[in-house]
Design a protein around this nucleic acid. Structure first.
Ligand SMILES: [Mn+2]
Ligand SMILES: [Mn+2]
Ligand SMILES: [Zn+2]
Ligand SMILES: [Zn+2]
Lengths: 123, 123
DNA sequence: TATGCTAATGCAACTAAGTTGCATTTAAGT
DNA sequence: ACTTAAATGCAACTTAGTTGCATTAGCATA
């Protein structure tokens, strides 16, 4: 099982909470907040946040703030931009939009906000 | 005085709180949080947030979340991207970086995160 | 300039995401 | 199986932002 390996590779203890959390993040193709996840997990929110924080410091997970005051987490694969729709609040991973360059800066993350395709179509 | 006119143009009452708030946002060239502003204003935080919210719905002000869990506000001029530094947490207005295009989407706001010029230089 | 209506304000209580301290449990090496 | 440090659950806390309500202050009209 690759989830177990992911945890062992970082020299972290393989706990049920960690397996549960990575399982859910891996099975979704879009970023999730604690709110999105909380009914699917058995761990306490303190455990959720402590593990997410560890996963982030080990570069297994990355996250960003949306405009609903919540933080969204996803398994860190190759870097890509995200689109947050001001209409329907949906968050999309833009896997085909490479991160732009900006002279002198190192761009590590990009968030676009605006109207998504379906909100544009039905407007 | 143009601050007074800005408020009257939107058919809002010209109150001292509103003048104070727009005065401070106008005098700064970068986005500010309530935390940044609170010692410079005399109004209550409820009044701050209610007015900021009205200014946003009237398109006088725009805002975005940073990664410190705070919302940053600025006078809405021409649209431009923002850069948030993961090193020093500074927020820059990228007035010369036009908003990119993305097929099918309407991009209204862009936030880049990473390392700023000075953090890159001293690293 | 005084009067009256309504929107704006101050205050205090509340909400909710995320954090922290601490006692208990559990993974994993021996 | 035994040991030990790391992980967990729980409850209390922190803090940005919100809300209800009584009071105040713009602004229109006379
Ligand atoms: Mn993504
Ligand atoms: Mn700006
Ligand atoms: Zn949408
Ligand atoms: Zn920096």
């Amino acid at each position: 099982m690759q989830i177990k390996n992911m945890i062992e590779e970082k020299n972290l203890k393989v706990t049920t909470a960690r397996k549960e959390l990575l399982e859910i993040l891996s099975s979704e193709k879009k970023p999730l907040s604690f709110e999105d996840i909380k009914d699917k997990i058995s761990m306490d929110k303190a455990t959720f946040y402590r593990n997410i924080s560890k996963f982030e410091s080990e570069s297994m997970v990355n996250s960003f703030e949306s405009n609903d005051k919540k933080r969204y987490y996803e398994i860190q694969e190759f870097p890509h931009a995200h689109f947050i729709c001001n209409g329907c609040s949906n968050i999309e991973c833009l896997e085909n939009a490479p991160l732009p360059k900006l002279d002198g800066y190192t761009i590590m993350d990009v968030i676009y906000k605006g109207m998504c395709k379906s909100c544009n179509a039905t407007q």
